[in-house]
């Protein structure tokens, strides 16, 4: 699974992208988020933001969205283009 981070989140975590071979039992996007949050700071607080958005395979999703090892997940703040 590929996990991407964008904008302020990318900067706070100092991570653009990571590749997971194993999902460690994760079934949903929320499970992945929980695993990332257990890494301590800055992961715990940066990923705890109220308005964190998640996409699965480049479509806006939610924490209950089911995932598989072939999916591309992304976490990012609310968008501000235009």
């Amino acid at each position: 699974m590929k996990i991407l981070f964008f904008a302020s989140l990318r900067e706070q975590l100092n991570t653009e992208e990571e590749e997971w071979q194993e999902l460690n039992g994760a079934l949903t996007a929320g499970d992945i988020l929980s695993q990332l949050q257990t890494r301590g700071e800055p992961w715990a607080s940066s990923l705890n933001a109220d308005r964190l958005l998640v996409s699965v395979n480049q479509e806006i999703s939610n924490l209950k969205t089911k995932i598989t090892a072939d999916d591309e997940l992304a976490f990012f703040p609310p968008v501000t283009g235009g």
């Binding site: 964008f6 968008v79 501000t80 235009g82």
Partner: peptide, 18 residues
């Protein structure tokens, strides 16, 4: 403006912020 995944960071004399 509300759905496409773009993010702006403004730059000013004191630095920059999302």
């Amino acid at each position: 403006k509300t759905d496409a995944p773009f993010w702006k960071k403004e730059c000013h004399a004191q630095g920059s912020q999302w």
